[in-house]
């Protein structure tokens, strides 16, 4: 079962380093203030809802998981769910979640225009409000621009605080790559990192996928990460 989950093209040694997403390893100057604000606001139980918005690759999912780790560290239970993943299960999956002091829902766009889901989210919000609990959601747009069909839900999301994440700059991307490489025990010289940034798509997730690929190839070939090696693996 575990093998199935991790996918087929993996190393013979079935160990994969865990990528716990915390505030500590949410890197980059551009969104540092936003992350700091989210950490503090997630401790404020009088705040019913926080909307973290930003384009793909800005680290929204990372921050949601970071909130959960942080909440657990404070001795409260929390839950982090991806709505796109839950979609096939139907909106009843949200039942009972309001008992958690913090519920983080990633990718609210996945349910926009889906009336039963929007209504279920609305009821979840109300129950969390009644319980004095906090709901944190991510979206690519601000609540007013999301196009939610249920105005009651849109209005409730607007009642909270919106935290905007910006696209990382190249220096931030380099930092993220370097940190991930270090966590993998991989030596990524700066010039190689900059080379990757010059050639690859600069979407953070894609960059990390490239690093995974380079990591595996480097291990298999027993080669260090050099520009020629990266060129040969990536076909650049």
């Amino acid at each position: 079962m575990v093998g199935d989950t991790l996918g087929g093209d993996q190393l013979t040694l079935g160990v994969r380093i865990r990528d716990d997403a915390t505030f500590r390893n949410y890197l980059g100057e551009r969104n540092a203030d936003a992350a700091h604000k989210l950490r503090l606001l997630s401790e404020d139980s009088t705040l019913p809802v926080i909307v973290v918005c930003g384009d793909s690759g800005t680290g929204k999912s990372h921050l949601l998981q970071a909130v959960c780790h942080h909440t657990e560290a404070l001795g409260l239970s929390s839950l982090c769910l991806n709505l796109e993943e839950l979609l096939p299960l139907g909106p009843d999956v949200l039942q009972g979640l309001a008992d958690y002091p913090r519920v983080c829902l990633d990718d609210i766009e996945a349910v926009i225009g889906n009336a039963p889901w929007e209504e279920a989210l609305f009821h979840l919000f109300n129950r969390m409000l009644d319980n004095g609990h906090q709901l944190i959601v991510t979206a690519s747009q601000t609540p007013a621009s999301l196009g939610l069909g249920l105005r009651d839900l849109a209005s409730r999301l607007q009642h909270g605080i919106v935290i905007q994440l910006l696209l990382p700059r190249d220096d931030d991307r380099l930092l993220i790559l370097g940190s991930r490489a270090e966590a993998r025990g991989l030596d990524l010289p700066e010039e190689v990192g900059r080379f990757i940034l010059r050639r690859a798509t600069r979407h953070t997730g894609d960059l990390l996928d490239i690093l995974d690929r380079l990591d595996e190839s480097s291990l298999k070939a027993q080669r260090k990460l050099t520009i020629p090696f990266v060129k040969s693996v990536m076909g650049w």
């Binding site: 716990d20 959960c68 982090c80």
Partner: peptide, 18 residues
């Protein structure tokens, strides 16, 4: 289990269990 499953799956399904 945390080491065996991707963080997303672990946090969604296993971590919430009491």
């Amino acid at each position: 289990l945390r080491d065996e499953f991707p963080a997303q799956q672990f946090n969604t399904w296993l971590r919430p269990l009491q």
